[in-house]
């Protein structure tokens, strides 16, 4: 019980398989409220799969995932309840191209939270201001740059007022000059005390905001620790090899 109260996310022995391929081999990870976690590792290491299991975009095949005290998969209603509290930002933005920026942000508050239109609009404008993009509210996603689109995606997720934000390689699809504006937005968010789980290769960001860096390889958590320790003296050979590759 004590465990549940302290950890907003608790994963125990989580297994995920794609046919014969095991993407996650019994992964355990607990995250406290307000904690900022950066997950890194080589491609195919299972880091995206892990983060996508937290809100049930991928269904885990074994183990136990508890988010905000609710166990994922324990009852049919839990997954919706969890998704209402967990925002997600994707590598490819996934904005809805037929809706304006404002409509993108208002959709879930209107339909899921059932806010009145005026209030949903207010919430949407508030968060668009927060990601410093209110002047683009009436435009369509296709008219924006990648960096702007990703900031809209962050605002859209925030409009549901989530307790946890998941970032799945949010800057990997961006041109280099747009990475900073997205990272700055994420740093703002971190400073406000949001619980964040970020899959990213942005080691500068990890150093600046992460409480803990989790290094994954071949479907396992190989090591985890405070960023200054992880970057300076990684314990494992695999982590050392990985760090050398991304710095080079």
């Amino acid at each position: 019980m004590e465990d549940k109260d302290r950890h907003i996310i608790a994963m125990k022995g989580v297994v995920k398989k794609y046919g014969a391929f095991v993407a996650l081999k019994s992964v355990s990870l607990s995250i406290e409220q307000g904690e900022r976690i950066v997950i890194c590792g080589p491609s195919g290491s299972g880091k995206s799969t892990l983060i996508r299991c937290i809100n049930g975009i991928e269904k885990h095949d074994g183990g136990k995932i508890t988010v905000g005290g609710m166990e994922l998969g324990a009852s049919a209603g839990n997954i919706d309840a969890i998704r209402r509290e967990v925002g997600m930002v994707f590598q490819s933005f996934n904005l809805f191209p037929h809706l304006t920026v404002l409509e993108n942000c208002m959709l879930a508050p209107l339909r899921v939270r059932r806010l009145p239109r005026a209030e949903a609009r207010q919430v949407a404008m508030h968060f668009l201001q927060k990601v410093r993009i209110p002047e683009q509210a009436e435009k369509y996603p296709g008219q924006l740059s990648g960096g702007q689109q990703q900031r809209v995606a962050i605002a859209r997720a925030l409009c549901m007022k989530p307790k946890i934000m998941l970032f799945d390689e949010p800057t990997s699809a961006l041109d280099p000059e747009m990475v900073k504006e997205v990272l700055d937005t994420m740093i703002d968010l971190a400073q406000e005390g949001m619980t964040m789980v970020c899959v990213t290769h942005e080691m500068g960001f990890a150093r600046q905001v992460a409480d803990r860096v989790v290094f994954m390889d071949r479907g396992e958590i190989v090591e985890s620790g405070a960023p200054e320790i992880f970057f300076r003296s990684p314990e494992t050979e695999r982590a050392r090899a990985f760090l050398q590759q991304i710095i080079a």
């Binding site: 975009i57 209402r84 996934n94 959709l107 995606a153």
Partner: peptide, 23 residues
């Protein structure tokens, strides 16, 4: 329609009906 559209709708807690209807 790309899978990402479905995933984004799911992540926003839209129901299956709402996902098809609005997205």
């Amino acid at each position: 329609i790309s899978r990402g559209q479905f995933e984004a709708a799911q992540a926003l807690a839209l129901s299956t009906f709402q996902t098809y209807r609005f997205v």
